[in-house]
Amino acid sequence: RATAPGRLDPLGVPRGRLGPTGRALLDRLVALYLDRLPPELAAREADRLHGGELHFAWAGAVEPGRRHYYRVQGDDLLIEYDNTTDDGNHAHTVLRRPAGDFGADVLAAHHAAAHRPGPVRGDAPR
Rank of each mutant, 00 (worst) to 15 (best):
A2M: 03
T3I: 00
T3V: 10
A4V: 11
G6I: 02
G6S: 06
R7D: 09
D9F: 09
D9W: 05
P10S: 05
P10R: 04
V13A: 13
R15Q: 15
R15F: 14
L18A: 13
L18Y: 11
G19R: 04
T21G: 11
G22Y: 04
G22S: 10
G22P: 06
G22F: 02
A24R: 15
L25M: 09
L26Q: 10
L26A: 05
A31G: 10
L32A: 12
Y33D: 13
L34Q: 01
L34P: 02
D35N: 14
R36K: 12
L37I: 05
P38K: 07
P38E: 15
P39W: 01
L41P: 00
L41T: 14
L41Q: 12
A43N: 02
A43L: 06
R44Q: 13
E45L: 05
A46R: 15
A46N: 08
D47Y: 01
R48L: 05
L49N: 07
H50Y: 13
H50Q: 15
H55T: 12
H55F: 15
A57T: 08
W58L: 12
W58A: 05
A59E: 13
A59L: 01
G60E: 08
G60K: 07
A61G: 14
V62S: 10
E63G: 03
E63S: 10
E63F: 09
P64D: 13
P64Y: 03
P64E: 12
G65Y: 00
G65A: 07
H68W: 10
H68C: 07
Y70M: 08
Y70K: 00
R71N: 01
L77I: 05
L77G: 03
I79G: 09
Y81V: 11
D82K: 03
N83V: 02
N83S: 01
T84F: 06
T85V: 12
T85M: 05
G88M: 01
H90A: 14
H90W: 13
A91D: 05
T93K: 02
V94S: 14
V94W: 02
V94G: 03
R96M: 14
P98T: 04
A99I: 01
G100L: 05
D101R: 13
D101H: 02
F102I: 08
F102S: 15
A104T: 12
A108K: 02
A108Y: 04
H110I: 13
A114Y: 09
P117T: 00
P117S: 01
G118Y: 08
G118M: 10
P119R: 10
R121E: 10
G122P: 00
D123V: 12
P125F: 01
P125S: 03
R126V: 09
R126P: 05
